[in-house]
Amino acid sequence: MKVKIIPPAGSDRSALDARSWAELPEGSTVADALKIIKCSPAKARLLLVSVNGERTPLSRKLHDGDVVGFFSLVSGG
């Protein structure tokens, strides 16, 4: 199944395609997604790892089309 991972700075992007999607086996969890970008669970928790805009435990199962993201600082106007 395809999952989009928008990794934080310092991650390994080699498992991601140009649009940041990765192929993961069915039944993969957030923890599995972290492994393929080499992000430690501790860092992920600190950066409020989310799936589809909601914070989630690392054990959460992923589905096709999910987006795994991390809190980041973006600017206002």
Partner: peptide, 13 residues
Amino acid sequence: TLPLDGSLTPMLF
């Protein structure tokens, strides 16, 4: 410049 995730920008606002 780094592409970052926008889904949690609501937190700041």
